[in-house]
C-alpha cells in the first residue's frame, strides 16, 4: 500500500464505534451536543471557583446558585416574581404579534401604506426602548400596564419589519402563476404570499421574543416591586450574587424554551425546505 493510499484510507473517517458515538443522528445528537456545551461551562465554572481564582462573592458558583434555587423555590418566594415576569412577557408579546403581523402584511401589500409607514418604522425600530421607560412609567405607572407596553414596543417593530420584508421577498413570478391560471387575489395571498412570508415571521418572532425579555428586565430594573428583573436588582443591592445569577439563569432558560418552541413551529412549516446540514 502506497503512502497516498494509506492517507486516503485514514481520511475515510473515524472507526465505526467512534463514529457511532459522535453521530447518533437526529434529535438525540442535537440534544447531546447542546448539553455538552452547557454542562462543560457549568463544570469549568464550579472547578475554577473552587480553586479560588476569583472571589466567589462576586461571581458565585453553580453549587451556590443551586442552593439559592433550592431555598427560594422551596419557600416559594420566587414564584410570584417568575409569574409576574412571564405574564408581562406573554401579554406584551402576544398583543405585539396579533397587531404586528397583520399590519406587516398590510404595509407589505399596499405601496402607499408602505411609503407612509416605512420611515416611521425605521426610526422607531432603531430607538432604544429603554429610553422610553421613564416616560411610560410616568404615564402608565409601575404596575403590569407599563411593563406590557414596554414589552409590546420591544417586540412590535421587529415583527412588523420582518413581516414586511417577508412580503417584499415574494417572487413576482409566483404571483404571476396564480394570475396566469385566473386565481383570485385572495388565493394568491393564501397560496403564495403567506407561505413565502412565514419563515420571515418566525424569525421576527424569534428576534422579537428576545427583545421582549430585554424589555421585561429593563422595565423591572427601573421601576417595579415584583418580577424577576426586580428580584435580580434587589439582590444585587444586597450583594447576593447567587440570587442575581439565579435570576439570570432563569431568563436564560426562558430564552431556550422560547427558541425551541419557535423551532418546533418552523419545522412544522418548512418540510419543503432542503436540510442545509
Amino acid at each position: 500500500m502506497s503512502l497516498a493510499e494509506a492517507a486516503q484510507l485514514a481520511s475515510r473517517g473515524h472507526p465505526p464505534r467512534l463514529r457511532r458515538l459522535l453521530a447518533i443522528g437526529g434529535a438525540s445528537e442535537r440534544l447531546l451536543y447542546g448539553s455538552v456545551g452547557l454542562v462543560g461551562l457549568t463544570v469549568i465554572w464550579e472547578v475554577t471557583s473552587g480553586l479560588g481564582l476569583y472571589r466567589r462573592s462576586l461571581l458565585s458558583s453553580p453549587s451556590l446558585i443551586w442552593s439559592a434555587a433550592v431555598t427560594d423555590f422551596g419557600s416559594g418566594t420566587i414564584w410570584p416574581h417568575i409569574a409576574v415576569s412571564l405574564n408581562e412577557f406573554a401579554i406584551g408579546s402576544l398583543v405585539a404579534f396579533a397587531v404586528g403581523i397583520p399590519l406587516g402584511f398590510a404595509i407589505g401589500l399596499f405601496r402607499r401604506l408602505d411609503y407612509f409607514a416605512s420611515v416611521l418604522l425605521a426610526g422607531l425600530y432603531a430607538t432604544p426602548n429603554v429610553a422610553l421607560i421613564p416616560l411610560i412609567v410616568l404615564v402608565a405607572g409601575i404596575g403590569l400596564e407599563s411593563k406590557v407596553i414596554v414589552v409590546f414596543l420591544s417586540t412590535f417593530f421587529s415583527i412588523v419589519v420582518s413581516t414586511v420584508s417577508g412580503v417584499h421577498s415574494v417572487a413576482r413570478r409566483h404571483i404571476e402563476i396564480t394570475r396566469s391560471f385566473g386565481g383570485s387575489q385572495w388565493l394568491a395571498f393564501r397560496s403564495v404570499v403567506l407561505p413565502s412570508t412565514i419563515p420571515f415571521i418566525l424569525s421576527g418572532i424569534r428576534i422579537g421574543a428576545g427583545r421582549a425579555l430585554v424589555g421585561v428586565v429593563s422595565a423591572e430594573f427601573l421601576s417595579a416591586n415584583v418580577g424577576l428583573g426586580f428580584y435580580i436588582s434587589l439582590y444585587g443591592q444586597f450583594l447576593d450574587t447567587s440570587r442575581v445569577m439565579l435570576g439570570i439563569v432563569l431568563f436564560g432558560l426562558f430564552g431556550i424554551v422560547i427558541g425551541e418552541l419557535v423551532r418546533v413551529v418552523e419545522r412544522r412549516f418548512e418540510a419543503w425546505r432542503p436540510e442545509i446540514h
Binding site: 417572487a171 413570478r173 407561505p195
Partner: peptide, 9 residues
Amino acid sequence: FQDAALFPW
C-alpha cells in the same frame, strides 16, 4: 412557464 415555476412549499 420557463423555470422555477413550481411553488417550493
